[in-house]
Design a protein around this nucleic acid. Structure first.
Ligand SMILES: NC(=O)c1ccc[n+]([C@@H]2O[C@H](COP(=O)([O-])OP(=O)(O)OC[C@H]3O[C@@H](n4cnc5c(N)ncnc54)[C@H](O)[C@@H]3O)[C@@H](O)[C@H]2O)c1
Ligand SMILES: NC(=O)c1ccc[n+]([C@@H]2O[C@H](COP(=O)([O-])OP(=O)(O)OC[C@H]3O[C@@H](n4cnc5c(N)ncnc54)[C@H](O)[C@@H]3O)[C@@H](O)[C@H]2O)c1
Lengths: 239, 239
DNA sequence: GCAACTTTGTTCCTGCGTTCACAAGCGGCT
DNA sequence: AGCCGCTTGTGAACGCAGGAACAAAGTTGC
């Protein structure tokens, strides 16, 4: 494989291709990973880019380019060795180590996440739960007792939490976020419908279900108004 | 049947008054909407693009371009009338009517969604719950009794469900999806980690928490190996 | 009523990500 | 061994979204 130098200012021993990987590609790689592990369970040892792309719902050229970010480990005329590919994708995504997860706000959503077995199975053990509600503190959820939010910084540092998941009401999210950052957490998954302010070395991803529903609503509206021209409203004038 | 997931907005030929709205813009419009309603509650009647963009965490030029899709209702030298803007965004997103939601799979996640008050508040009333578990059928969750999955087509048609939310285990997702489609549901929000096969007129959005965690893991891995974490940038970048 | 200031709406441009297309490489077959 | 067909890896084209810059438009102050 020829290592192609993308304008990297970074220096010598760079074991990871890093910056060159588009975020969209990272998301897709996670999907390929799931498809691959599923296929491996079924005994599949080799897959072509066409097959894998089909299963993942993407263009095969896109897939091959994505895989080129992890380094070319395919065999021409044959395809990819599923086991080996999984190994390398896991390495690129940093899944060779476990990432300890803390869930803050053990309400409806927090409970669901704490009880969910799919995260530990994928290398994301939930090792801390927090809530401000005194009645919840001490009570085990999914086998793990809830701690008080005030202890977030110490507990997170202590248990080496790398990912914090915020499931509190929106008004509490920023406070909780600050506590997590104080505890050394650099990756945050935020379910509260607010924009969090964080230092630049902290990565925040937001999952906003209301926005998802509204996007679906948009498509629905589009479709309906296209089909039955009944809505007499003049809507958006072209200008 | 086409594999038709995520990202992709409507049709080749634009038969609607408004120009083609990029999906990313639709998502941001939903966010502006939330910011605006929140500001209106605080008595704000006017906002400039700069203010609104700041609150939403985007570039002001991007915001203005997004708003141009809804049809330019700002006043130069002043800004946007918050109430009017909300009205027009809601119209574009199809939020002037209610979208009845059905949740399928009343387990951990299904319970959380069924109990969540934020959806009805935003015009997405949950009007049907389904599960295959006989022990759950008939039991009210969040005030609504659970129906059996076999009744999905009839009940969805009857209650005019427009959005189906799938919270079943992955292996059941495709079956459930087919039932929803049979019931006339054209918009699906899928939490199960599988790619659904749907007719081309059905829009699927997938929320994959494992992928989100893995993306965070990737950034974490990159940071650690980069070792240059200490960029002394102290404050708050909105993301 | 006029001028200066503010902010919108839009155009242009740049950069990124996806897709196309093809040469290079590898295994299988004769 | 050598050819043939299949699949990868990637350079190049394309399309699109985001950002900068600016002219038009409207408001405020005098
Ligand atoms: N439940 C859902 O299906 C759903 C869907 C979309 C978005 N959300 C968002 O997720 C968040 C949680 O939703 P939910 O339904 O679980 O709410 P919830 O009210 O059931 O739970 C919130 C929990 O956070 C705790 N909490 C409150 N203030 C806190 C603080 N300062 N520190 C720590 N914990 C605190 C509360 O004690 C409670 O246990 C909300 O922001 C909501 O908008 C939830
Ligand atoms: N719970 C989470 O936090 C979480 C996080 C990420 C992803 N998910 C995904 O969401 C889905 C649901 O997760 P969960 O934790 O709620 O699981 P769960 O096992 O708690 O609940 C699944 C529910 O679906 C029902 N079900 C099973 N087969 C069905 C069928 N054919 N038709 C209708 N209902 C059926 C079950 O009876 C059960 O009530 C899974 O696909 C999971 O991977 C969950």
């Amino acid at each position: 494989m020829t290592v192609h130098q993308h304008g990297r200012y970074s220096t010598p021993v760079d074991d990871l291709p890093s910056r060159a990987v588009p975020e969209a590609a990272v998301g897709r790689l996670a999907i390929y990973l799931r498809v691959l592990t599923s296929m491996i369970e079924q005994g599949v040892t080799t897959m072509s880019s066409e097959e894998l792309a089909g299963a993942a719902g993407v263009n095969s050229a896109t897939l091959r380019k994505d895989l080129s970010y992890v380094g070319s480990y395919g065999t021409r005329g044959v395809g990819y060795d599923t086991a080996r590919l999984v190994e390398h994708i896991e390495q690129l995504l940093g899944l060779t180590r476990h990432h300890s997860v803390a869930v803050v706000g053990i309400g409806n959503l927090g409970h669901a996440l704490a009880n969910y077995g799919g995260f530990p199975d994928r290398g994301f053990p939930v090792t801390a739960l927090f809530d401000v509600d005194e009645d919840l503190v001490g009570i085990p959820v999914g086998g793990l007792p809830v701690d008080h939010v005030n202890t977030i910084p110490e507990v997170c540092a202590e248990r080496d939490v790398t990912i914090g998941v915020i499931c509190t009401p929106a008004r509490a999210a920023q406070t909780v976020c600050d506590l997590l950052v104080a505890g050394g957490v650099r990756c945050i998954l935020n379910f509260a419908p607010v924009m969090l302010q964080v230092p630049s070395d902290v990565e925040v991803r937001r999952v906003d279900l209301a926005v998802e529903l509204q996007i679906l609503s948009f498509y629905q509206a589009r479709r309906s108004s296209g089909r039955r021209a009944g809505t007499a409203d003049p809507v958006a004038v072209i200008r």
